[in-house]
Simulated assay, not measured.
Amino acid sequence: MEMAGGKVAHDVVHQKTDWNSIHEKICQLLIPLRTTMPFYNSEEERQHGLQQLQQRQKHLIEFCYTVAQKYIFEGRYEDAVPAALHSLRFRMNVYGLSSVELVPAYLLLAEASIGLDQIIQAEEYLSQAQWTVLKSTDCSYATHSLLHRNLGLLFMAKENYDEARYHLANDIYFASCAFGTEDIRTSGGYFHLANIFFDLMKLDLADTLYTKVCEIWDKYLNNRYQVLTEARVQQIDLLGKQFETDTGLDEAQEAEAIRILTSILNIRESTSSRAPQKIVFVLRILAQEYAMRAFNIAQEKQLGAHEQNLIEQLLSIISTEETYPIPYEAGFP
């Protein structure tokens, strides 16, 4: 009885975690999927109904994936698992059990498992992802990048730095092929590689990579501010065109930016020989990210013009502030 009671208690906790993590967010979206398909008068109507159903499922796939990513970047690994599992289940329903489209969800589950120090579980998810990629003939560079990044994280957790560097180098290569060497989606590989060099006390290499990551995010946020400014002048509702223009960050990318830049800031501040210019540089990028976030919220929630103008003024000050080349100093940072 005691064991059974313990299992019931565990299940209740698991269900509560699942509800708080993702189910509450998608509950209303699930209703159309669980409703019995109506009778259609023609094959054309039936096909249209099936397409609508598939579109809803694809929306849920991306929504659950983004939520899981956000939790991972925030270090909320236990919350990430239910969201990633939901994304995996919807992917199986839409694409089948052996599709390469399942790989991103496997990789999220692996990363969450690494964060929870469940290394064996992470290896199982990564093995499934690797096997699926090997069988695929049309796997994208972006998926290869994610696979190698997670393998790099796994070997970092196992303190096998040679294997970790190999996989992170491949991550950077494939991400560069997919997005370019200076893209924010490539910066994660540079960041994790820098962490390895920092742990190995190869401080000059770590410093170079940390600086590169900061420069990538600084350039991206400056460009994004310019787009927002132009949209404001032209009275364009950018929020409605966010995915079309690809100028904004989703919640997961915002969480990633804050996590990476905060980590670099902590490293810059904690080292014995500090370089104030480098600390200020990271702080300025973080300030711009938070200001951009506030700007988007102000528009989305339709706050008053006064609040929006104040945030715009702050963004303008941050973005136009003159910056000077950061001199390299021996003895990191």
Rank of each mutant, 00 (worst) to 15 (best):
A4I: 11
G5P: 00
V8Q: 10
H10S: 09
D11L: 15
V13R: 13
N20A: 03
E24A: 12
K25R: 10
Q28E: 10
P32R: 05
L33I: 11
T35E: 12
T35N: 07
T36A: 11
P38E: 06
N41W: 06
N41A: 13
E45N: 12
H48D: 07
H48Y: 07
L53W: 09
L53P: 00
R56Q: 15
I61T: 08
I61Y: 11
E62P: 01
V67Y: 14
A80D: 06
V81K: 13
L85A: 09
S87E: 01
F90S: 02
M92C: 01
M92E: 08
G96M: 02
E101T: 00
L107F: 02
L107E: 13
S113A: 14
I114N: 04
L116S: 08
D117H: 15
Q118M: 05
A122L: 11
E124K: 05
A129P: 08
W131R: 10
T132L: 02
S136H: 04
D138C: 04
C139T: 14
S140F: 02
Y141S: 12
Y141A: 12
T143N: 07
H144V: 01
L147F: 15
L151S: 07
K158A: 00
E159D: 05
A164K: 15
R165H: 11
R165G: 05
R165Y: 04
L168Q: 04
Y173P: 04
Y173Q: 05
F174G: 00
F174L: 00
S176F: 01
F179Q: 04
S187M: 03
S187T: 07
Y190D: 01
H192C: 08
A194S: 04
N195K: 10
N195P: 00
F198G: 00
K202N: 11
K202D: 10
L203K: 07
L203D: 02
D204S: 08
L205G: 00
T208H: 06
T211W: 01
V213D: 02
C214E: 13
W217A: 01
D218I: 01
K219P: 00
Y225A: 11
L228P: 00
A231G: 08
A231V: 02
V233M: 08
Q234K: 14
I236P: 01
Q242C: 09
F243A: 08
D246S: 12
D246H: 06
D246L: 03
L249D: 06
D250E: 10
Q253M: 12
E254Q: 12
A255I: 12
I258V: 10
I258R: 07
L261K: 05
I264Y: 03
N266E: 15
I267Y: 11
E269F: 06
S270G: 14
K278W: 01
F281S: 11
L283G: 12
I285C: 08
I285S: 06
A287T: 01
Q288F: 01
E289C: 08
A291W: 09
F295M: 09
A298Y: 03
Q302I: 05
L303E: 05
A305Q: 07
Q308G: 00
I318R: 05
T320S: 15
E322T: 14
Y324W: 11
I326E: 07
E329N: 07
P333D: 07
